[in-house]
């Protein structure tokens, strides 16, 4: 009996291994295809073209702005969800998670109905301030925030809920006011999760496609981010599409390496 069990442990079932390799192939083969198709010699020239530079700049600006916006409103939202008991809290939590599961195109359409020129809020907003969100860079930021912010909220909320509230209590007995407690105890103690959440949010924002193209359109220099530029280039200029794709893979890979295992632990 024991001999049999030992042998089984030391040699995993072939079927499982074969399926696992197949599973891995799903991720790896497309990347190999991309690498195989890469015009390495022309890469520097391709990546410095005007459309690429515009798209890269716009992607950086919009993803960083979305990350900043998420930090300003998403962290307080996470705090409220973690620390304040109110009726319907689980419904609110569900609403926050919704952008993770609905198709981004649907999110973009919903934004259009709400904030478009004829939208629920968009129309009065336009009449009052002359502001037009769709097809503007601000629209990109908003669409991208809609899709990416949940990553920050769930990461930070999880960290806050796991944080032993006695640390904050101890700080209070030592004379720390609420803001001091937040600044010197709460945030430093959840810093790894906060950083992980911000980086994930930024990475998701950088790659956003569906909500952006639906709500903000595809205007080079104004709303055409990297993923949109890839999509357009696929039709006209394959080499540029490949170069852009490679650039995005490189950025994503760098983010994952920088994060290592942190984000799994914080959830």
């Amino acid at each position: 009996m024991t001999g049999l069990r030992k042998r089984r442990v030391s040699r995993p079932p072939l079927v499982l291994v074969a399926l696992a390799v197949l599973g891995l192939a799903v991720f790896v083969v497309p990347l190999l295809g991309l690498l195989a198709r890469t015009p390495w010699r022309d890469l520097p020239a391709l990546l410095t073209g005007e459309i690429v530079a515009d798209a890269l700049r716009l992607s950086m600006v919009s993803s960083l702005a979305a990350t900043a916006l998420s930090a300003v409103v998403g962290v307080p939202l996470a705090w409220v969800l973690a620390r304040v008991e109110f009726p319907g809290r689980s419904i609110v939590r569900g609403l926050v998670l919704l952008p993770l599961v609905i198709p981004p195109v649907v999110g973009g359409a919903a934004l259009l109905f709400a904030l478009g020129r004829r939208g629920l809020i968009g129309e009065p907003l336009n009449q009052a301030t002359g502001l037009v969100l769709p097809f503007s860079t601000w629209g990109v930021v908003l669409a991208v925030t809609f899709v990416a912010m949940p990553f920050l909220v769930i990461t930070v909320e999880g960290a806050l809920r796991n944080l032993d509230s006695r640390y904050e209590g101890a700080a209070a007995t030592l004379g720390a006011k609420r803001w001091t407690v937040l600044r010197r105890v709460t945030f430093p103690m959840i810093a790894p999760s906060l950083v992980a959440g911000l980086v994930l949010t930024w990475a998701r924002a950088l790659g956003e496609f569906g909500a952006t193209i639906t709500f903000a359109g595809n205007l080079p220099g104004r709303t055409q981010t990297l993923p949109l530029a890839v999509f357009v280039a696929l039709e006209s200029d394959r080499d540029t599409a490949v170069a852009l794709s490679l650039l995005m893979v490189a950025i994503s890979l760098a983010v994952l390496v920088a994060l290592r295992g942190r984000w799994w632990r914080s959830l």
């Binding site: 101890a170 700080a171 209070a172 007995t173 004379g175 720390a176």
Partner: peptide
């Protein structure tokens, strides 16, 4: 609590793990 001036030694001490001994003691 911050205005009560009550010193508490908590069960398991609840020292701030991200601060040095010096900063823990100086926290108050």
């Amino acid at each position: 609590p911050e205005d009560r001036r009550i010193g508490v030694v908590f069960q398991d001490y609840v020292l701030f793990p991200h601060l040095t001994v010096m900063d823990n003691i100086a926290f108050g």
